[in-house]
Design a protein around this nucleic acid. Structure first.
Lengths: 225, 225
DNA sequence: TTGAAAGATTAACATAGAATTAACATACAC
DNA sequence: GTGTATGTTAATTCTATGTTAATCTTTCAA
């Protein structure tokens, strides 16, 4: 479902028609109030916002969407009337996922919509990690090495996920401590012990966890296995 | 620095002119080979690719850029000639950061370029450094010379980063001592020893670190060493 | 309520490599 | 040449992390 907020009847119909023909379900709104009402019930895959609107302008809507953590991941595309407006929107950079300037071609619109949705889907399904022999699927709480499923304790699991989410990048000790153990923690050997247990349980994949002395640990990326 | 690969002389000039007027440094290439050659020495902030090119098409270039982990984070913007082409590019979704359809307005081009670069700067707060054969990516803790990864100790690493952050400028001994070792430090040979170890480990890139007698050290910049 | 188990944490020690220092060498400015 | 700044080397000290086992905690079934 795509939500389109646009007060110009012609454009609204045009966009609805073009996207509908491509198989998208589109609900159009001419005023923001209606839009917000529907947002409370059904969340869309994508929101397309005109800038100039009665009652509340598109930028304000965008801002509210991105400030709310229930809606912040919904991709938003802005429709801009003039080049100068376009510039203003991108300049403010309030987190819109794409911008399209009026007048726009139908093909371009469709392509951009598809691209934005695809990108979004990709980041969501990014919830599966695979590095070498290690395979982790958080949604199902599956961790396996060379096809062999492995059991991890809660902290070990969290630790692994934090490292995986930054795959290839170093995560410093402090970040690990706060993300896995919560705010402040007296430095002790706890982290090291957990890293060790993780490495042991991961077996051959244990060497994927690299120590970066003085900083922290990282998993995958760069170096040799 | 922005790299633009476009074989149509008129468009290349137009884009160069438009972006130059906005303060961007643009280098244009009419054939991919030239582009690749320059990529080996200086990495740009952004690459703008036409799709139809002699020798190697834009999609292939895009693919190669995104497959190489040294270039994958460089934002890429595709120029597409027709709507159908536009559709094709976004459809393949090989990780381009934006698409712009010809004919395009100058304002839109500039806005999109700015938006892409801004987004990029935001995600990559830590930069990537490349001087000659030396390549450093702090976030991933990757240091390599001539493509060969190198291991540095913590202080050596810090020292290198401090120098790199001031690339081309001299960093005096005192600044180095305080930034790497913390407030006050009795003058000893420590710094020199670390500089030496760094130079040795960097191998051929070691000569990039120049001594500025009486002041400190600098990396890169005017080198007639 | 009690008592295994598993998990988390701490204590205690090991150890590889780093950092530092000392001691001397060299280069360069004056 | 003299003196000062930096280079070089090796010996010494130190530190971060690894490792193991003991001790706390929590959970949960009997």
């Amino acid at each position: 479902m795509i939500y389109l907020v646009e007060d110009d009847d012609n454009i609204r119909k045009l966009v609805k028609y073009a996207l509908a023909k491509e198989g998208f379900e589109v609900t159009g709104f001419s005023v923001p109030t209606e839009f917000w009402e529907h947002m409370r019930t059904v969340m869309p895959q994508l929101v397309i916002l005109d800038i100039m609107l009665p009652e509340e302008d598109g930028l304000s809507i965008l801002k509210r969407l991105k400030e709310n953590n229930k809606t912040e991941q919904i991709p938003v595309m802005m429709l801009t009337a003039k080049d100068s407006e376009f510039d203003k929107v991108t300049g403010l950079d309030m987190g819109a996922d794409d911008y399209i300037a009026k007048p726009f071609g139908t093909m371009e619109l469709i392509s951009r919509v598809r691209a934005v949705i695809r990108r979004y889907d990709k980041t969501r399904s990014k919830n599966i990690f695979q590095i070498g022999e290690l395979y982790v699927e958080p949604a199902k709480h599956i961790i396996s090495v060379s096809g062999q499923e492995i059991e991890l304790s809660y902290k070990e699991y969290l630790l692994l996920i934090v490292l995986l989410e930054a795959e290839g990048s170093v995560v410093d000790r402090n970040t690990l401590l706060t993300r896995v153990w919560g705010e402040y923690y007296t430095e002790s050997r706890t982290l090291d012990v957990h890293i060790r247990k993780l490495r042991v349980k991961l077996g051959e994949a244990g060497s994927l966890i690299q120590t970066v002395k003085g900083i922290g640990y990282k998993i995958g990326g760069g170096s040799y296995a």
